[in-house]
Nucleic acid binder design. Structure first.
Length: 216
DNA sequence: AAGTTACA
DNA sequence: GCGG
C-alpha cells in the first residue's frame, strides 16, 4: 500500500528527511502563501518573467526572474550572478522582507541558522515546463544552503547524487513545501519533472518556485 | 552548463 | 504508444 502525498491536504508543517543535509519542511510556507505571492507579483511587475537561453542555445521552458542583490542569469556567455537585470538594465528588485524572513526561518529550521540570502531566483512553471538535473554551483561559498519554496501546482522534484548519473529520488512537492539542502548535500544534482495541467486557487495554471541562495 | 533526442 |  502506497502513500500518495498528492492526496494529503496541507496539515501541520512537519519535517521529512531526504538524506544527510537535505530536508523537506512540508507546508512550511502555506500560512504565508498569500503575502508571498503578492510579493512575487510585485517583483514580476518590476522585472518581468523571461525565458532565458542556455549557453548551448536552447531556450529554457521555465520563465524566470530574480530579486535581491544578485540575480542568476544564463545566456550564450554562460551562467552567472549579476546585480543588474539584463532585460530592464536596472538593479534587480529588492528582496521583499516576507521572502527574506521565510528563507531565514526555514533555513534555520533546516539546520542553517546563519543563512542570509542575497539572491532569490523566481521560477514560473506552466504545463509542460521542466528543469533537467543540474547542480547549483555558481555561488561563491558552498557552505551556505539552498532554500527552495514551492507555491501553487504540485510538481515532482528529483533529488540525485553528486554525479549526474546517480539515480535521483522522486519527491512530490506541494503548495507551501520548502526544501532546504546544504552541507554534504549542497552540490547534489536536482531538477523537476514536467508540470502537469491543473488549477490552484492562488496561482492558477502555474507553479512558482522561489530559490534562495547566498551568491557572494 | 539548468538543453534536446534516440533508444532500451 | 508513452514517459522517464
Amino acid at each position: 500500500m502506497t502513500l500518495d502525498l498528492f492526496d494529503k491536504l496541507p496539515s501541520e508543517p512537519h519535517f521529512e528527511a531526504i538524506c544527510e543535509g537535505a530536508v523537506v519542511l512540508r507546508g512550511a510556507a502555506v500560512r504565508d502563501a498569500d503575502a508571498l505571492m503578492g510579493a512575487v507579483r510585485r517583483v514580476i511587475a518590476e522585472s518581468p518573467l523571461r525565458r532565458m537561453k542556455t549557453p548551448g542555445g536552447h531556450t529554457m521552458s521555465v520563465a524566470m526572474t530574480c530579486c535581491g542583490q544578485y540575480g542568476w542569469v544564463t545566456d550564450a556567455q554562460g551562467y552567472r550572478y549579476q546585480s543588474e537585470d539584463p532585460v530592464t538594465g536596472k538593479p534587480w528588485p529588492a528582496m521583499p522582507e516576507e521572502l527574506l524572513r521565510l528563507a531565514r526561518e526555514t533555513a534555520a529550521r533546516g539546520g542553517f541558522p546563519d543563512f542570509v540570502p542575497d539572491a532569490c531566483l523566481i521560477n514560473c512553471y506552466e504545463p509542460g515546463s521542466r528543469m533537467g538535473l543540474h547542480q547549483d554551483k555558481d555561488e561563491q561559498d558552498f557552505s551556505h544552503p539552498i532554500v527552495s519554496v514551492s507555491l501553487g501546482l504540485p510538481q515532482i522534484f528529483q533529488f540525485g547524487g553528486d554525479a549526474r548519473s546517480d539515480c535521483p529520488s522522486k519527491i512530490p512537492l506541494q503548495h507551501g513545501d520548502v526544501v532546504v539542502w546544504g552541507g554534504a548535500a549542497r552540490l547534489r544534482y536536482h531538477g523537476v519533472l514536467t508540470l502537469k495541467h491543473g488549477h490552484h486557487p492562488l496561482t492558477g495554471a502555474y507553479r512558482y518556485n522561489l530559490t534562495f541562495r547566498r551568491a557572494r
